[in-house]
């Protein structure tokens, strides 16, 4: 049985090690205000269920799963009057509105962004977990509550769909080209 001091120590460790990743996860999917709320809510759940949070390396995927649910709870309100505009401008994968978080996009990046945005929401989320959160297929399966095989299938289809969208765009725009070398990442 863990003492309250142990729980506090564990929570502090999780908070220190993963808060940036959880906030980034939320900011990639929601407006700044919603992302902050979802991040706070995620760690609130962590605090309440600290004994159920798995140890590393499963901690972060577990936090993403909680954050996803928190964001989903917010999303349920999208039909509510007065909230839709904010969702329109931020939901999905748009950068947050804060100037400090806005990244300068190349023109061809918009083509890629739009292509990802047009994926089905579930496929989009899996692609984002794959590329932006850099999770393994098994970790994505944990976060999404799916089988590994289902994740593989979804990713395969999503990339096929992206390929069908992006290849014609590449052929008519000389500014769009596949990347040569990997940079950045999470």
């Amino acid at each position: 049985m863990t003492t309250q001091a142990d729980q506090r120590l564990r929570f502090d460790t999780i908070w220190r090690e993963h808060r940036h990743h959880v906030l980034a996860y939320c900011l990639r999917r929601a407006s700044s205000a919603d992302a902050e709320d979802a991040c706070a809510e995620t760690f609130l759940v962590v605090w309440r269920r600290i004994d159920e949070i798995p140890p590393t390396p499963k901690t972060l995927p577990c936090l993403y799963g909680i954050a996803r649910k928190s964001l989903s709870n917010q999303t349920r309100a999208f039909y509510r009057r007065g909230r839709l505009h904010a969702k329109l401008t931020n939901l999905g994968m748009a950068p947050a509105a804060d100037p400090m978080l806005v990244v300068v996009q190349r023109a061809d990046d918009k083509v890629v962004t739009d292509a990802v945005r047009r994926l089905k929401p579930l496929d989009r989320e899996i692609v984002m977990l794959d590329v932006w959160e850099d999770l393994s297929r098994a970790e994505i399966a944990d976060v999404m509550g799916m089988t590994r095989a289902a994740v593989d299938q979804r990713i395969h289809r999503a990339y096929q769909r992206l390929s069908r969208t992006l290849e014609p765009a590449m052929s008519i725009s000389p500014t769009i080209s596949p990347p040569i070398a990997e940079e950045g990442g999470t």
Partner: peptide, 11 residues
């Protein structure tokens, strides 16, 4: 494709 998507990661 993966790299193209990675490039548009806002964070």
């Amino acid at each position: 494709i993966r790299e193209m998507v990675r490039r548009v990661n806002p964070i």
